[in-house]
Write a protein that binds this DNA or RNA. Structure first.
Ligand SMILES: NC(=O)c1ccc[n+]([C@@H]2O[C@H](COP(=O)([O-])OP(=O)(O)OC[C@H]3O[C@@H](n4cnc5c(N)ncnc54)[C@H](O)[C@@H]3O)[C@@H](O)[C@H]2O)c1
Ligand SMILES: NC(=O)c1ccc[n+]([C@@H]2O[C@H](COP(=O)([O-])OP(=O)(O)OC[C@H]3O[C@@H](n4cnc5c(N)ncnc54)[C@H](O)[C@@H]3O)[C@@H](O)[C@H]2O)c1
Lengths: 221, 221
DNA sequence: AGGAGTTTGTGAACGCGAGAACAAAACGAG
DNA sequence: CTCGTTTTGTTCTCGCGTTCACAAACTCCT
């Protein structure tokens, strides 16, 4: 389930506030979901709650971490150390949430040797050696879109079976390899869409006799 | 629909390859979705296709852009010019997809005046003046989690009605304000989850008599 | 010990989106 | 003009995820 990490973060926040036990209502509020949904999600992992009492925060935290698989660190490689790659390499949140950046790779040899957050940038061709040495299963693509498919192919060939792709390109991979795509432009465009609909709503509130969909400008051609 | 930006990007890619017209099958393949779903999504916008022929790429591109609301540029402010804020400010993809960064804000006055991608960093307290001057409706939060709620409150007070939040914190906003959250750690954790399940699958393939869920270590307490 | 009050775990209804299948429409050939 | 081909727009069904509602179970107080 994609919601488990959200629960884990909410539990960590509760633990940091010294809270030792919590009800499904509390946790659901902290995670921003319905309490019935949360209970059903948790019951899928097993019966870790106590009726009439609630959940033990630390115990549940460990169980969810175990289910997700972040009780030990996962080695990660980042490919493409440009603007975004630098930010990712400097991000401390990965380390504290179960991930360890074992290598930074870039095709631009001028970047080789540069230290980012204490990790040296290495040539992209070192990928295979690094991946097999550290048993890397997770790779991050932060290269331009044009290079994304090539990088993904090389990663898969080197034994990577999970890819986080920041490039705005659809990449295809063999069966058994997971890809997740993060596309910041699309997030903004979705906001713009809702923003525009708010503006329309507003216009119609003030001029209720306007049609909902105005005539298309720039018609057929 | 959250898929419209994906279609728009696929159409742009087709247009750049000189393709003037395409069928729903073609476009669906480029966008990585089912063709029936794509046709249903497009029919929700109106009847912009021609039976027996397909869709005119440029015409459909304009219609989708109009529906999303990116036929004109949206002004955007970015708050928190640290690692991530720098990367976002330098990202050219925003500009080319309908967004214009009108201001970079940071509470750290030592950053004031620094130029990032030609835009100067300004004090966070300039938010209200900038927002009203440029009619900013969209704000990006790239501050630490502890500051996210405060920044969001100030943004809302300044008239921002859509927020893209990169901080790992649940922020609450009044009715009518949209928030989208991008959480990179959660993306990685979801990959780790699948990765772990692959490892389990594999272990069970080799030792089919192991139970599916091993006994819980660290039992009750 | 027993009852009152809480809170979990789950069975059942509901709603919604996805996909298959088909009818309507446009185009071209003869 | 008519028929066959292609492709859209739409209807229908199926399955899944969400949510409600309630019984089981645990604690605490008397
Ligand atoms: N910067 C952002 O905030 C941002 C936001 C959203 C999406 N993106 C996407 O992330 C990707 C990277 O963005 P960026 O701003 O860091 O770009 P960038 O140009 O600053 O960095 C790209 C890096 O990738 C390296 N590279 C190029 N081809 C390579 C290859 N074949 N193998 C290995 N490395 C290679 C380049 O040498 C460069 O260092 C782009 O696809 C961009 O669209 C960036
Ligand atoms: N760096 C990454 O790749 C990355 C990845 C995922 C998530 N994030 C999240 O994005 C956020 C920023 O990350 P970062 O690495 O850029 O951190 P950072 O510490 O480098 O930058 C944070 C910036 O915010 C400014 N700031 C702090 N409080 C502020 C306030 N009240 N108002 C305005 N500005 C304020 C600071 O001066 C600093 O410049 C964090 O919440 C982090 O968890 C970062």
């Amino acid at each position: 389930m994609a919601r488990l990490p959200v629960y884990l973060r909410a539990l960590t926040a509760l633990a940091e506030r010294g809270i030792r036990t919590c009800s499904s209502e509390d946790l659901a509020a902290a995670a921003g979901v319905n309490s019935a949904k949360l209970r059903k999600d948790l019951s899928y992992l097993g019966s870790y709650g106590t009726r009439g009492v609630g959940y033990d925060v630390d115990y549940l935290r460990y169980q969810i971490a175990r289910e997700i698989g972040v009780t030990h660190d996962w080695p990660v490689v980042i490919v493409g150390i440009g603007n975004l790659g630098h930010a990712l390499a400097n991000y401390s949140g990965f380390r504290s949430r179960g991930f360890r950046v074992v290598a930074l790779l870039d095709a631009d040899l001028e970047r080789t040797g540069e230290l980012v957050a204490g990790v040296p940038v290495r040539p992209f061709d070192d990928l295979e050696a690094i991946a097999s040495e550290h048993s890397v299963a997770i790779g991050v693509i932060a290269t331009p879109a044009a290079a994304a498919q090539d990088v993904a192919d090389r990663m898969v060939a080197a034994g990577v079976t999970s890819i986080l792709n920041f490039a705005p390109a659809v990449i295809s991979v063999p069966e058994g390899v997971d890809v997740r795509k993060v596309d910041l432009s699309i997030e903004l465009q979705i906001l713009a869409y809702h923003e525009q609909r708010k503006a329309h709503e507003h216009a119609r509130d003030e001029h209720p006799d306007l049609p909902e969909m105005p005539a298309v400008v720039g018609g057929d051609q």
